[in-house]
Simulated scan of single mutants.
Amino acid sequence: MAYKEPTFQDRAALAAQAKQKAIEKLKAKPPVDPAVAAARAAAREAKEAALVKKREEKAAAIEQARLDKIAKAEAAAAAIEAEKQRLIDADIAAKAARDARYAARKAKR
């Protein structure tokens, strides 16, 4: 017996049979117990709440890290500014000492 190419009607009938079988299988399924459905919904809501909390904690940690970085940069800038002021004061003191020595030499003459 040779291979026979299925016709359109054969393929349509097979598809209809498969569809009918799937519908019967779905109808044979027992209905969902309301208590089980409520428990699933509560578990889903708890999971979503945990995810929201986790996201908020992560956002807070990122914001805190950003603020720490800004504070560190501001502290570094303040240290640099203090060092600049110290150097300026040292230069002023050195100039004052030089001027005093010059004035002392002038006073000797």
Results as ranks from 00 to 15, higher is better:
40 R>I: 12
53 K>C: 05
83 E>D: 04
86 R>C: 04
35 A>T: 15
83 E>K: 02
76 A>W: 04
71 A>K: 11
28 A>R: 00
72 K>V: 04
64 Q>T: 04
98 R>T: 12
80 I>H: 10
97 A>C: 03
102 Y>R: 12
87 L>N: 06
93 A>V: 02
53 K>P: 00
8 F>L: 07
39 A>K: 08
59 A>W: 03
48 E>D: 09
48 E>P: 01
101 R>P: 00
55 R>V: 11
61 A>M: 13
54 K>F: 14
89 D>W: 11
30 P>D: 06
75 A>R: 14
99 D>C: 08
5 E>G: 00
94 A>K: 15
100 A>F: 06
109 R>F: 07
109 R>L: 15
22 A>F: 05
86 R>V: 09
9 Q>Y: 03
84 K>G: 07
89 D>T: 04
69 K>Y: 11
20 Q>F: 02
93 A>W: 02
78 A>T: 07
92 I>L: 14
25 K>Y: 05
84 K>V: 08
63 E>Q: 14
54 K>H: 10
30 P>I: 02
77 A>D: 08
34 P>K: 07
5 E>R: 00
32 V>P: 01
55 R>Q: 14
79 A>E: 05
14 L>M: 10
89 D>M: 07
78 A>N: 12
50 A>G: 08
39 A>R: 14
27 K>C: 01
23 I>P: 00
50 A>F: 07
1 M>R: 09
21 K>V: 07
100 A>C: 09
17 Q>M: 03
76 A>S: 13
14 L>K: 15
37 A>P: 01
26 L>G: 06
62 I>M: 06
43 A>P: 03
93 A>Q: 10
44 R>C: 05
77 A>V: 05
102 Y>W: 12
5 E>S: 06
45 E>L: 10
47 K>Y: 02
41 A>V: 08
62 I>L: 15
103 A>S: 11
91 D>Y: 02
25 K>N: 10
27 K>A: 09
1 M>V: 05
97 A>E: 10
47 K>T: 03
76 A>M: 11
20 Q>C: 05
106 K>E: 10
93 A>F: 01
7 T>M: 06
41 A>Q: 06
30 P>V: 10
99 D>F: 15
2 A>Y: 05
91 D>R: 08
104 A>P: 00
26 L>F: 15
88 I>W: 02
63 E>C: 03
73 A>L: 07
104 A>M: 06
96 A>L: 14
98 R>I: 08
6 P>H: 01
47 K>N: 04
5 E>C: 03
19 K>E: 03
27 K>G: 03
55 R>C: 13
70 I>E: 14
77 A>K: 09
51 L>V: 12
72 K>G: 08
19 K>T: 02
10 D>G: 01
55 R>K: 13
3 Y>G: 00
2 A>R: 10
42 A>M: 12
34 P>T: 02
78 A>P: 00
80 I>D: 14
62 I>R: 07
12 A>P: 00
45 E>M: 06
95 K>T: 03
26 L>A: 15
7 T>F: 05
99 D>A: 14
2 A>N: 14
62 I>E: 15
62 I>W: 01
45 E>V: 07
18 A>C: 10
72 K>I: 02
63 E>N: 15
44 R>P: 00
3 Y>W: 02
37 A>V: 09
94 A>D: 12
103 A>R: 03
85 Q>A: 15
103 A>G: 02
34 P>A: 08
